[in-house]
Design a protein around this nucleic acid. Structure first.
Length: 764
DNA sequence: GCCGACCGTCTTTTT
DNA sequence: GACGGTCGGC
């Protein structure tokens, strides 16, 4: 991957770098004190402007400790840091720079005692939060089919991002009416208990990091005063993605010096689902009436075709600020449209297009990116690229830090640092198996709440609270944790403690004994985590080498931040469009342009927001420098079903004069040749088809299928007139390896398919 | 208490 | 296809 506009010799003298900028860019870099809003179109050199502006401030004697630079994602923040270090040298390390979450986590650690937390507080990730919610829902005896952890989590998260506390939530008539209408009137109570439990666990979830910062600044004016005066300059990148909670923090922090620079592009706002609010841009002018606005409208990145195509797409949105992006670059090639019969074929066509283009133009793997709407789409491209021997890497998807074995070890580390961490406790108490089952854990929890003491108090002194068989393993566990704690108190560094814990807890041993392929890879992952900790300790930039400091640094890392094996950068990059923001590639493939997939059906149903999806498409298009390709598949194997697809309305919305559809036409007459299975839920799908399937006539050598059983179809099997999710199987026959099915799809009518495998299950 | 088998649910995107 | 939860046998 190429870092945006990377400039290898960026350590420049002022006059040098000023001469490389256009007029509005220079104006933004040199702008003096007071509020400034930069509206920066895609590819307009925004990061460069921010970098030079910081360099300029430092040249003029501003102490880096007094500059606060906030971004939205870890990737953007890492890149900014890298570029600024390139421009101003190691002093850049002293700038307060990072994501909103990481910077305010740091401040909250320092000021934790004001809010009743210790500075070792844990950070609950989404899994922890949902698991805690599940327990609460269970304890309340609520129906978990109605109160789904996911939904409840999103409600609570939304409330926190609007700074609505649990009490506010319960006392707000509108919200209560909403919940009542959704038949979930207990959410307020769940929220309240959830907040209490997090507090008791000395833990904050992602949203708390912002919410509690607001509380801190609201209730402790002295603390606010300190930071207001500390930060002489505040900068916010990707301003269009900030939510109310984030905006209020930055507004307060810049209220004294009023040197606030926000940079954004309303056309690239793609995080409304997290409460991002374009109105922040409008509010900004209200809160800072003397704001100066500078627009960066020249695109330096892409060809004329790509810029025009992007503009033709975004022009369909109604809500937009006025802005005219243009480019002086060449027109460049048309956008290729690739039409595939199936998801697998889409993978093959894209992979071979990459190979061809690489050969013809002597390009490298790293010049290419494949962008998709959902992480699950990566599979077919991985397979195809592997077959052609093209190296690739995937950003996102199941994160390293989400893997079970990693979370297990991190659970031990977290619990060693913070014994009130309930979720960590639940994770490790019986891991590896030490004979402490659910019943015992429940008994411990009850004892703790009956005696009104923390769980750890009961575990550490189990002899005082219980007798009997189960106390021995609990005592052992308590002793184990106590011995780890002693290491912390002795001032051992993160690596010493963590590697000791990995060995002594038995986690490593258990994985080592697992000789399966997965077991081996899990063992390696744990080793990799330990290596990461070692690097953390060895890195001279990190002053604090304690385990607590490591956990801090790691708990806000997510999918994009895999430990970097940095051996081979020449790889094709695959990622979601969300992850791609801020990056650029010579050649970009936007894949899976099918109705209901992109734009996402869910987004349209739940938020009715086609415009945000369109902005997402805009972001994807504008990642490309020289060459852009679109692809879609006519059928997609998804959720164990074959789904027939229409080309996406987005694809059709692009002004056709920018499209090269010859490839697509060429494929028109070919037959669909895709794997297909009728695995599960073969019968009616919930809302759409209430009547059960009874009339399926399916014959196997042994007779009729048994209800609720799974069969691999074998030689001679026949299936006729069977309904499934998307239509009816008129006839399916298996002759040797040749599996042929005639299927009538609801959407596209009759098709004959060749199947690479077929499984069948009938639900009575 | 443990384990394997089975069932249901969920797949938007990120911190 | 992946995961968490549940159930029944040991």
């Amino acid at each position: 991957m190429k870092i945006v506009e990377e400039n290898k010799s960026e350590r420049l003298k002022k006059n040098d770098y000023l001469s490389t900028l256009n007029e509005p860019q220079r104006e933004a870099v040199l702008y003096g004190n007071g509020p400034l809003m930069i509206i920066a179109g895609a590819g307009s050199g925004k990061t460069r402007v921010l970098t030079y502006r910081i360099a300029h401030l430092m040249e003029n004697g501003v102490d880096p400790f007094r500059i606060l630079s906030l971004t939205f994602t870890n990737k953007a923040s890492g890149e900014m840091r890298h570029r600024i270090e390139g421009a101003v040298g190691t002093e850049a390390r002293n700038i307060w720079m990072g994501t909103f979450h990481s910077v305010f986590a740091k401040i909250l650690r320092i000021e934790a005692r004001f809010l009743g937390y210790t500075s070792d507080f844990s950070i609950y990730d989404t899994d922890d939060s949902k698991s805690l919610l599940r327990s609460i829902i269970k304890e309340f005896n609520l129906d978990d089919k109605i109160y789904k952890a996911n939904v409840v989590y999103n409600r609570i998260s939304g409330a926190k991002n609007r700074l609505v506390s649990a009490d506010d939530y319960i006392n707000n008539a509108v919200i209560q009416a909403d919940d009542e209408a959704a038949k979930m009137k207990e959410i307020g109570r769940i929220y309240k208990t959830y907040a209490t439990r997090c507090f008791q666990a000395n833990a904050m979830d992602f949203d708390d990091l912002l919410f509690n910062t607001n509380v801190l600044f609201r209730d402790f004016p002295d603390v606010l005063y300190k930071y207001q005066h500390k930060f002489q300059h505040v900068m916010v990148d990707e301003f269009q993605d900030t939510n109310v909670s984030q905006y209020l923090i930055t507004r307060k922090l810049s209220a004294v010096h009023r040197n606030i620079v926000v940079v954004g592009d309303d056309a690239q706002s793609i995080y409304a689902f997290r409460g991002a609010n374009i109105e922040n841009i409008l509010n900004f002018s209200k809160d800072f009436p003397d704001v100066q606005t500078i627009k960066l409208e020249q695109n330096y990145r892409s060809t004329g075709t790509i810029v025009s195509a992007a503009n033709s797409v975004i022009a369909r949105n109604k809500a937009q600020l006025e802005k005219h992006t243009f480019t002086a670059n060449d027109e460049g090639a048309l956008i290729d449209v690739i039409k595939a019969g199936s998801d697998n074929e889409e993978g093959r066509l894209v992979a071979s297009a990459i190979l061809e283009e690489k050969m013809q133009k002597a390009l490298r793997n790293e010049n290419f990116a494949i962008l998709y709407r959902t992480n699950a789409q990566s599979r077919s491209f991985e397979e195809a690229l592997r077959k052609l021997g093209i190296k690739y890497r995937i950003i996102g998807g199941q994160s390293f830090y989400q893997r079970k074995e990693i979370k297990d070890l991190l659970g031990y580390l977290r619990f060693t640092v913070n014994q009130r961490d309930e979720e960590a406790f639940k994770r490790i108490i019986n891991l590896p198996k030490r004979g402490i089952g659910d019943t015992t854990v429940a008994r411990i929890t009850v004892t703790a709440s009956e005696n009104n003491v923390p769980i750890w108090e009961v575990v550490a002194n189990i002899g005082n609270y219980a007798t009997g068989r189960t106390i021995a393993p609990i005592e052992q566990f308590g002793t184990l944790i106590k011995s780890f704690k002693i290491m912390l108190e002795d001032g051992k560094d993160a690596y010493e403690v963590a590697s000791h814990i990995a060995k002594v807890s038995g986690i490593l041993r258990e994985l080592y004994e697992d000789k399966t392929v997965e077991g081996l890879s899990r063992y390696e992952n744990v080793q990799e985590l330990l290596n990461g900790i070692k690097e953390f300790v060895d890195n001279e930039e990190n002053e604090d080498k304690t385990l607590s400091a490591f956990l801090q640094s790691v708990s806000l890392l997510t999918n994009a931040d895999e430990p970097d094996d940095n051996e081979d950068h020449d790889r094709v990059t695959m990622m979601t469009i969300h992850s791609a923001k801020g990056l650029e590639f010579r050649n970009v493939f936007i894949v899976g342009l099918e109705e209901d997939l992109f734009p996402s059906q869910m987004m349209l149903e739940s938020r009715q927001d086609l415009e945000e999806e369109r902005r997402l498409f805009y972001v994807a298009i504008t990642r490309a420098e020289k060459k852009l390709s679109f692809s879609y598949a006519e059928s997609r194997y998804q959720w164990g079903r074959l789904k027939m697809c229409e080309p996406s309305r987005f694809l059709l919305e692009v002004d056709p004069k920018f499209l090269n559809i010859s490839n697509a036409l060429r494929r028109d007459s070919e037959q669909i040749n895709s794997p297909m299975s009728f695995v599960r839920n073969l019968g009616p799908r919930k809302a759409t088809e209430p009547k059960p399937v009874t009339a399926a006539t399916a014959h196997t050598p042994t007779g009729d299928f048994i209800p609720s059983d799974t069969h691999d179809l074998a030689e001679g099997d026949k299936v006729e007139h069977m309904k499934f999710g998307f239509g009816t199987v008129l006839k399916m026959e298996v002759n040797g390896t040749d599996r042929k099915a005639t299927v009538k799809f609801d959407s596209v009518g009759e098709k004959t398919l060749l199947l690479s495998f077929a499984k069948l299950r009938i639900i009575k």
